[in-house]
Amino acid sequence: MDSCLLFATELYALPILRPLAVAAQRAGQRVGWVVPESVAGYLRADETRLRSARAVRALAPQAVFCAANWVAPSLPGAKVQVFHGFNAEKREPDRGHFRLRGFFDLYCTQGPATTAPFEVLAREQRYFAVAETGWPKLDPLFAPTPDAPSLRPEDGKPVAMYAATFTESLSSARAMVDTLRVLTARGDRHWLLTLHPKCDAELIARYRSLEGPFARFYESDRLLDMLRAADVLVCDTSSVIDEFAVQLKPVVTLRNRRPKPFMLDVAEPSLVDAAIAAALSHPAALMQALADHAAAIHPYRDGRSSERVLAATDRLLTGGYGRLARKPLNLWRRWQASRDVRALLPD
């Protein structure tokens, strides 16, 4: 493989795909980005945005890496799914993480908990391959560069992070505003706050208003910096929980849809403060549950998942997974995907 395309339709895709871009360029490959205007402003000077179908054809990518659940079949190259998050179990399996849409040739899974179900689906459907690689987004978490920014304060106070799911019926964001206003002003902890970029603008403004000496609000492109800096996460039902937990750091959840042993789940915002204190004491049973969960969802701690994704893609391109069946037609879905990509890449 000598060139590849990174397909980033949302801001959250940048930290997922950037480690792949770095690994590909390190291997001597040419890399291009396809992004909408809402994401383009966040690209770095060395990240080449392709603005037309002609530019994509000139790059001639052998593979398209995608964090969203769709990609246009008309784009050249094998279609590789690297996922936008962990399986947060917001929906039933056939409507959530394991839902197939017929777009992808290869699924690069994060760990045993997702590999096994996708391997079952691959045997049933026969049109895609599965490789357990770990998640590229977490490479900088486990192997940060020497110049990686730190959001930790120097006064030694614990750092709490707050994040919420975008799914309104599961989100704690509105319920937590008043509680966070008290906790962030108290000064015994530092707070890092974020919301999904698609959240209501008024709600985001309310969270920005919580900024002060002990609290900062960051957009999702700084998520990895927040994950590295925080000692404890406060959340609800979001895949961010797993991104944090793989570091073996404790998580407090508010009304999680399916609480697990590694979470300290509470029913009301008023109980969050005490749960944070309990989490920061690192009880043995909780820490063992964290270790067991991390081993199931993402056992890779070497910061080299991107290299494994590239190797799996090379194997796909050279026929290493055997002959795959034709993808399902899904004409309506394909038409929608082609229409949407034409808006990003006019001829």
Results as ranks from 00 to 15, higher is better:
residue 76 P to Q: 06
residue 156 G to C: 05
residue 157 K to W: 04
residue 74 S to V: 02
residue 288 Q to R: 15
residue 19 P to H: 10
residue 285 A to R: 15
residue 25 Q to M: 14
residue 201 A to L: 10
residue 37 E to I: 09
residue 217 F to E: 03
residue 143 A to N: 08
residue 177 V to H: 14
residue 162 Y to H: 14
residue 139 D to A: 00
residue 130 V to H: 05
residue 104 F to N: 01
residue 246 V to M: 08
residue 275 A to S: 05
residue 301 R to K: 09
residue 263 M to A: 07
residue 172 S to I: 03
residue 277 A to R: 11
residue 65 F to P: 03
residue 69 N to K: 13
residue 143 A to I: 01
residue 126 R to Y: 03
residue 170 L to Y: 06
residue 133 T to H: 04
residue 251 V to M: 11
residue 246 V to I: 14
residue 103 F to D: 10
residue 174 R to L: 12
residue 209 S to G: 12
residue 260 K to I: 08
residue 309 V to H: 06
residue 297 I to T: 02
residue 344 L to I: 01
residue 130 V to W: 02
residue 202 E to W: 09
residue 37 E to Q: 14
residue 272 V to A: 07
residue 137 K to L: 10
residue 10 E to S: 11
residue 305 S to C: 10
residue 51 R to W: 06
residue 263 M to L: 13
residue 79 K to A: 07
residue 221 D to Q: 15
residue 72 A to S: 15
residue 125 Q to H: 15
residue 347 D to V: 05
residue 341 V to D: 02
residue 141 L to C: 03
residue 162 Y to M: 13
residue 179 T to V: 10
residue 139 D to F: 03
residue 200 D to S: 09
residue 237 T to Q: 05
residue 121 L to C: 04
residue 181 R to I: 00
residue 327 K to N: 02
residue 167 T to K: 14
residue 210 L to R: 09
residue 296 A to I: 00
residue 295 A to G: 12
residue 153 P to L: 07
residue 141 L to N: 01
residue 42 Y to W: 12
residue 182 V to H: 11
residue 30 R to M: 11
residue 341 V to R: 00
residue 205 A to S: 11
residue 216 R to Y: 03
residue 164 A to C: 14
residue 323 R to Q: 12
residue 222 R to A: 15
residue 339 R to F: 05
residue 102 G to F: 07
residue 235 C to T: 15
residue 73 P to G: 01
residue 144 P to Q: 02
residue 164 A to Q: 09
residue 206 R to E: 11
residue 24 A to I: 04
residue 264 L to N: 06
residue 114 T to D: 15
residue 166 F to P: 10
residue 149 P to K: 01
residue 144 P to S: 02
residue 86 F to E: 07
residue 10 E to Y: 12
residue 313 T to A: 02
residue 246 V to E: 08
residue 315 R to T: 12
residue 35 V to N: 05
residue 157 K to S: 12
residue 333 R to I: 00
residue 261 P to H: 05
residue 162 Y to I: 10
residue 53 A to D: 06
residue 40 A to H: 05
residue 263 M to R: 09
residue 17 L to P: 09
residue 202 E to N: 08
residue 49 R to F: 08
residue 59 L to Q: 02
residue 107 Y to Q: 00
residue 259 P to D: 12
residue 7 F to V: 09
residue 120 V to D: 06
residue 334 R to V: 01
residue 212 G to Y: 06
residue 34 V to S: 05
residue 122 A to C: 08
residue 60 A to C: 03
residue 171 S to M: 03
residue 102 G to P: 03
residue 296 A to L: 13
residue 333 R to C: 02
residue 96 G to I: 06
residue 230 A to K: 05
residue 107 Y to C: 00
residue 303 G to E: 07
residue 68 A to P: 09
residue 2 D to C: 05
residue 77 G to F: 04
residue 67 A to F: 10
residue 256 N to G: 11
residue 269 P to G: 06
residue 103 F to W: 05
residue 292 D to Q: 14
residue 220 S to L: 15
residue 152 R to Y: 00
residue 269 P to S: 07
residue 89 E to A: 14
residue 22 V to E: 15
residue 188 D to Y: 09
residue 54 R to N: 03
residue 49 R to N: 03
residue 307 E to Q: 13
residue 223 L to K: 14
residue 101 R to I: 10
residue 204 I to R: 13
residue 61 P to Q: 01
residue 179 T to N: 09
residue 138 L to T: 05
residue 252 V to G: 11
residue 264 L to T: 11
residue 160 A to C: 13
residue 154 E to I: 04
residue 197 P to Y: 03
residue 244 F to S: 06
residue 286 L to K: 11
residue 108 C to N: 00
residue 310 L to I: 10
